[in-house]
Simulated assay, not measured.
Amino acid sequence: MIRAAMSLVGLLGALAVVPPASAEGNSDYSVLMISRERLEVASSCEIGIYLNDQLAGRLFQEQSTSFNLPPGPVDVRLRLLPGQMPGCAPGIEDQRSTRLTLQAGQIKKYRIATGHKGLELRQANLGY
């Protein structure tokens, strides 16, 4: 019994020495969230998300994704991807991209929508 009490006291003492984990100190990155809601884009084709001209994610209807990115500017381009769904063959490529400037510790959420010039990002509420 005394041995168990001593080990408990030793364990509590060791825990007092370890600093608590904190997410506030690790804000050297930003979070970019992109969602695709069914009502915004009527196509059943897969949408590719390109960050700085590199394919970084793919979204079907009612999916979302997030990226941990370093602070600074990032170019985001959206494109319908060819796939197994009928009518998803590539057509004329839209080369427009949206430049976002992210700050350290910032969380930004966007949703994919269809505008006059094709697919676009619209800022959304975080919903917390």
Rank of each mutant, 00 (worst) to 15 (best):
A56I: 08
G57W: 05
G57T: 05
R58G: 09
R58N: 06
R58Y: 06
L59F: 14
Q61P: 02
Q61N: 10
Q63K: 06
Q63F: 03
T65C: 05
S66R: 12
F67G: 00
N68L: 15
P70V: 08
P70L: 14
P71V: 06
P71F: 03
G72T: 02
P73Q: 15
P73V: 00
P73K: 15
P73M: 12
P73W: 03
P73G: 10
V74K: 00
V74S: 06
V76P: 01
R77C: 02
R77P: 01
L80E: 00
L80P: 00
P82L: 00
P82I: 07
Q84T: 07
M85P: 00
G87R: 04
G87C: 08
C88H: 02
P90W: 07
P90Q: 09
I92N: 14
I92D: 13
R96S: 09
R96W: 09
S97W: 01
T98F: 08
T98R: 14
T101M: 06
L102Q: 10
L102E: 06
Q103R: 09
Q103P: 02
I107K: 10
K108I: 08
Y110P: 04
R111D: 12
I112R: 03
I112H: 02
A113R: 11
T114K: 13
K117F: 04
G118P: 02
G118L: 05
